[in-house]
Design a protein around this nucleic acid. Structure first.
Lengths: 341, 341
DNA sequence: GAATCTACCTTGAACCTTCACATTAAGGTA
DNA sequence: TACCTTAATGTGAAGGTTCAAGGTAGATTC
């Protein structure tokens, strides 16, 4: 037997299709007794409204497009995973769903998203990884496609679209202060040249954490490519310059630095108490060094809230520009020691 | 101005909407001159067919549902990421798109996917992480929903749906043989109790790799929970039992084992040449130990091919049950040494 | 007792495409 | 010329929903 439709249900119940529709979409318009009767029949029949018909009529699919960026790095990774998962969950709560897109660059991403939007397959998009020269927000606004972005629009901080970003600095500052509390005074920063904007932010956190220490910070500030080895070498340079600890832009770098400190320890300081990393990878947990956590679950929830209030002129208002603090996951430095080299 | 439709285009061109439709969907039916004229106009007008209208008529959306499983583990991770990315890419090549779903278990996943299927939002589903008691294939088949699965149906290997799986054993066997080539004769296996079926497979690979060595393999075979520390401790046990090397079920375990070997080295064997891990994490690359790679990109491509041939009765046939070998990424053992504890 | 209001329900139309079939034009054959 | 075939294009209908507008009955107002 064919799947039930509004019409077939209506016929069986002896009411009009609109009444059945109302029971589903605007129950308050229907008398309680009728409503219940219809509801029960809907249940029994297993009726599900046709997404296509609904979309055709309302011009909405409740589907949101987002780019699945290729895997950058496994050790720091899982952030994207966590984010994606959290977004999916938040969307589902509101009856929406994410559809994925791949792209090899921002232009391709734009093309893909716009394509889906123009066929009416998606209602909106969620961007991530914003950068100063990012043309995506402007383009999307130009064609009137709703969107939100994870990451502030660096090129134009007054851009009108909603966004949520993480203040990478707060967590790093916290981490740097933790190092100071532990007695370190000469603390370096090892940043990753691979993530420019974000890294500037993290460096800023270190600078703030170092406030009050009157030294030439420039020579304690290193910028190297991503990777454990580079962290190792950078820490050696910092050691030569008198550092006893380092705040690192990523967990790979931190792992390298930690290895260096185990190799030539500073008396009085446990190595795992002398390093702070970023992204709270399982490695940081196992080795016991502190690391900064990005609250991506919160980001996802807020972004989705923003997006929905963009799409549905609901009463519920929400902040259109939010910066969430990153926070330190402080560890006691009592994990498995690691020695590299 | 409103977005163009088949009708508006047809009116402008002085042809019927069906002709325009044919230019898009069945160009061979249209005279070349007409076709070109229509094509050009389509271009200029920026016309895009309405996904909703098409879906309503054809009962197909070209959208595929799949579950986004929560992040299990960062260090071994990125496999799910890679897979998701590869699936998305493969689907896009055929004009399809993945929509994500979250669920806290298989039943919830089923409910979510079936829900989407019943509203007609998705045409099919892609399952992953199959297990012996998996009820998903049977349920989906029962309601007639097309699907493929990454992972064989352990409970019923003759199940008729298409699937692709990875033979976890081949890579581990290869790894074990590599250890033997390097001179090891007493090689342990450290498996993860967290992934039972998969782990059985990997253990099997080790057993095969050990063929011809006449020892009591039982006491060389350890099963421990996931985690670097557990790998470390397990390796210590194996050392006490005379092992000089270990094949490990995951890279976390391998990292732990490696740390143990650096702590109490076996003379004549470089530690990083005495361990084989699984999943080729960045950590394994940095530390220079060998690791087994799952060809998830291939898996994704095959699964998508199967799925499409399930959905579209095209000529193109493809194997309905495929087992791909995992392969060893052999490394020289010349990475950054690591010492844990 | 007619006019007005309210609560509830129904009807016609539209959303845009594709399917199935009908029609026309062009060309060939007897 | 009449007839047939094939290629090219056109027409009506259907797919399932929601919007906008309309109708009906009963209660309320003056």
């Amino acid at each position: 037997m064919a799947r039930p439709t509004l019409i077939s249900l209506a016929k069986e119940l002896g009411v009009s299709r609109q009444t059945v529709s109302n029971v589903i979409n605007a129950p308050h318009l229907v008398k309680t007794s009728t409503r219940e009767r219809v509801r029960e029949h809907i249940e029994r029949s297993g009726y599900r409204p046709s997404a296509a018909a609904r979309a055709l009529r309302t011009n909405r699919t409740k589907i949101v497009g987002m780019r699945m960026s290729p895997v950058l790095d496994g050790i720091n990774g899982s952030v994207m995973d966590r984010y994606l998962h959290a977004v999916t969950e938040a969307l589902e709560e509101r009856g929406y769903h994410p559809v994925l897109v791949t792209a090899s660059g921002e232009q391709e991403e734009l093309a893909a998203l716009i394509g889906l939007y123009e066929t009416g397959l998606i209602d909106a998009a969620m961007l991530a990884y914003t950068s100063p020269l990012d043309s995506r927000p402007a383009e999307l606004r130009r064609i009137g496609m709703p969107f939100v972005s994870f990451g502030r629009p660096w090129g134009d901080l007054d851009a009108p679209h909603p966004w949520v970003d993480i203040d990478n600095a707060t967590g790093v500052e916290e981490g740097t202060r933790l190092l100071r509390e532990r007695g370190h005074t000469r603390i370096g920063f090892i940043g990753s040249s691979d993530f420019s904007m974000i890294d500037r932010d993290r460096r800023e956190g270190w600078l703030r954490g170092m406030r009050g220490i009157d030294e030439n910070l420039d020579e304690l500030d290193l910028c190297v490519p991503e990777g454990i080895e580079h962290g190792f070498r950078a820490m050696r340079v910092l050691r030569d310059r008198g550092c006893t600890a380092a705040s690192c832009g990523t967990d790979s770098l931190a792992l390298g630095a930690l290895g260096m400190l185990y190799e030539s320890p500073v008396s009085g300081f446990a190595p795992a108490e002398s390093v702070v990393g970023f992204d709270d990878s399982p490695v940081s947990a196992a080795l016991g060094y502190s690391s900064v956590v990005q609250p991506v679950e919160q980001v996802a929830a807020l972004l989705v809230a923003q997006l929905i209030s963009e799409l549905e002129d609901s009463v519920e208002m929400c902040e259109r520009h939010v910066v969430l603090p990153s926070v330190l996951r402080a560890r006691l430095g009592r994990g498995l020691p690691v020695r590299l080299r």
